[in-house]
Protein backbone atom coordinates (compact mmCIF):
# COMPACT_ATOMS: atom_id res chain seq x y z
CA UNK A 1 0.00 0.00 0.00
CA UNK A 2 2.86 2.40 0.80
CA UNK A 3 4.26 1.96 -2.71
CA UNK A 4 0.93 3.01 -4.22
CA UNK A 5 0.71 5.99 -1.86
CA UNK A 6 4.25 7.01 -2.75
CA UNK A 7 3.48 6.84 -6.49
CA UNK A 8 0.27 8.86 -6.13
CA UNK A 9 1.84 11.56 -3.97
CA UNK A 10 4.94 11.74 -6.19
CA UNK A 11 2.78 12.31 -9.29
CA UNK A 12 0.64 14.92 -7.51
CA UNK A 13 3.63 16.79 -6.10
CA UNK A 14 5.50 16.70 -9.42
CA UNK A 15 2.50 18.16 -11.24
CA UNK A 16 2.09 20.78 -8.48
CA UNK A 17 5.76 21.76 -8.66
CA UNK A 18 5.51 22.03 -12.45
CA UNK A 19 2.47 24.30 -12.11
CA UNK A 20 4.23 26.52 -9.56
CA UNK A 21 7.32 26.77 -11.77
CA UNK A 22 5.16 27.68 -14.78
CA UNK A 23 3.61 30.47 -12.69
CA UNK A 24 7.09 31.64 -11.63
CA UNK A 25 8.13 31.81 -15.28
CA UNK A 26 4.95 33.41 -16.64
CA UNK A 27 3.73 35.45 -13.66
CA UNK A 28 2.80 38.91 -14.84
CA UNK A 29 4.10 40.65 -11.70
CA UNK A 30 6.89 40.14 -9.21
CA UNK A 31 4.39 39.39 -6.44
CA UNK A 32 2.89 36.51 -8.42
CA UNK A 33 6.35 35.03 -8.71
CA UNK A 34 7.00 35.44 -4.97
CA UNK A 35 3.71 33.75 -4.18
CA UNK A 36 4.49 30.87 -6.54
CA UNK A 37 7.93 30.50 -4.93
CA UNK A 38 6.21 30.26 -1.53
CA UNK A 39 3.98 27.50 -2.89
CA UNK A 40 7.05 25.74 -4.30
CA UNK A 41 8.61 25.85 -0.82
CA UNK A 42 5.43 24.36 0.66
CA UNK A 43 5.55 21.58 -1.97
CA UNK A 44 9.19 20.90 -1.03
CA UNK A 45 8.21 20.63 2.64
CA UNK A 46 5.39 18.26 1.68
CA UNK A 47 7.84 16.06 -0.23
CA UNK A 48 10.19 15.96 2.77
CA UNK A 49 7.30 14.97 5.07
CA UNK A 50 6.14 12.22 2.71
CA UNK A 51 9.69 10.86 2.49
CA UNK A 52 9.84 10.71 6.29
CA UNK A 53 6.42 9.08 6.60
CA UNK A 54 6.88 6.43 3.92
CA UNK A 55 10.43 5.42 4.84
CA UNK A 56 9.88 5.88 8.60
CA UNK A 57 12.90 8.00 9.45
CA UNK A 58 13.36 11.47 10.94
CA UNK A 59 16.33 12.77 8.98
CA UNK A 60 14.40 15.70 7.47
CA UNK A 61 12.54 16.79 10.59
CA UNK A 62 14.81 19.70 11.51
CA UNK A 63 14.76 20.88 7.89
CA UNK A 64 10.95 20.93 7.92
CA UNK A 65 10.94 22.88 11.22
CA UNK A 66 13.49 25.36 9.85
CA UNK A 67 11.46 25.84 6.66
CA UNK A 68 8.34 26.56 8.69
CA UNK A 69 10.19 29.05 10.92
CA UNK A 70 12.20 31.11 8.42
CA UNK A 71 10.43 30.39 5.13
CA UNK A 72 8.43 33.62 5.25
CA UNK A 73 11.38 36.02 5.38
CA UNK A 74 12.00 36.02 1.63
CA UNK A 75 8.47 36.91 0.60
CA UNK A 76 8.19 39.57 3.33
CA UNK A 77 11.41 41.22 2.14
CA UNK A 78 10.41 41.20 -1.52
CA UNK A 79 6.91 42.49 -0.73
CA UNK A 80 8.38 45.31 1.35
CA UNK A 81 10.69 46.53 -1.40
CA UNK A 82 8.25 46.13 -4.26
CA UNK A 83 5.77 48.29 -2.32
CA UNK A 84 8.32 51.06 -1.92
CA UNK A 85 9.50 51.07 -5.51
CA UNK A 86 6.14 51.11 -7.26
CA UNK A 87 4.53 53.68 -4.95
CA UNK A 88 6.87 56.58 -5.58
CA UNK A 89 6.23 57.39 -9.28
CA UNK A 90 2.43 57.06 -8.98
CA UNK A 91 2.25 59.74 -6.26
CA UNK A 92 1.32 63.14 -7.68
Amino acid sequence: MMGLVLTLTAVALALAAAGAIIRIARGPSLLDRVLAADVLLAILGAALCIDMAVNRHLNNLMLVVAISIIGFIGSVTVARFVADRREQPSEP
Binding site: R23, C49, I50
Partner: peptide
Protein backbone atom coordinates in the same frame (compact mmCIF):
# COMPACT_ATOMS: atom_id res chain seq x y z
CA UNK B 1 -0.61 11.71 2.71
CA UNK B 2 -2.70 11.48 -0.47
CA UNK B 3 -5.00 14.33 0.60
CA UNK B 4 -2.01 16.46 1.65
CA UNK B 5 -0.36 15.95 -1.73
CA UNK B 6 -3.63 16.80 -3.48
CA UNK B 7 -3.65 20.09 -1.51
CA UNK B 8 -0.38 21.02 -3.21
CA UNK B 9 -1.83 20.06 -6.57
CA UNK B 10 -4.92 22.18 -5.89
CA UNK B 11 -2.71 25.14 -5.01
CA UNK B 12 -0.79 24.78 -8.27
CA UNK B 13 -4.02 24.56 -10.29
CA UNK B 14 -5.30 27.63 -8.49
CA UNK B 15 -2.07 29.50 -9.19
CA UNK B 16 -2.38 28.71 -12.88
CA UNK B 17 -6.08 29.38 -13.37
CA UNK B 18 -7.11 32.21 -11.02
CA UNK B 19 -7.16 35.67 -12.58
CA UNK B 20 -5.39 37.98 -10.11
CA UNK B 21 -3.03 38.09 -7.14
CA UNK B 22 -5.64 38.06 -4.37
CA UNK B 23 -7.41 34.92 -5.58
CA UNK B 24 -4.05 33.23 -6.18
CA UNK B 25 -3.14 34.02 -2.57
CA UNK B 26 -6.34 32.25 -1.52
CA UNK B 27 -5.24 29.13 -3.38
CA UNK B 28 -1.65 29.31 -2.13
Amino acid sequence: MVVGALMSLAAAIGLLRFPDLMSRMHAA
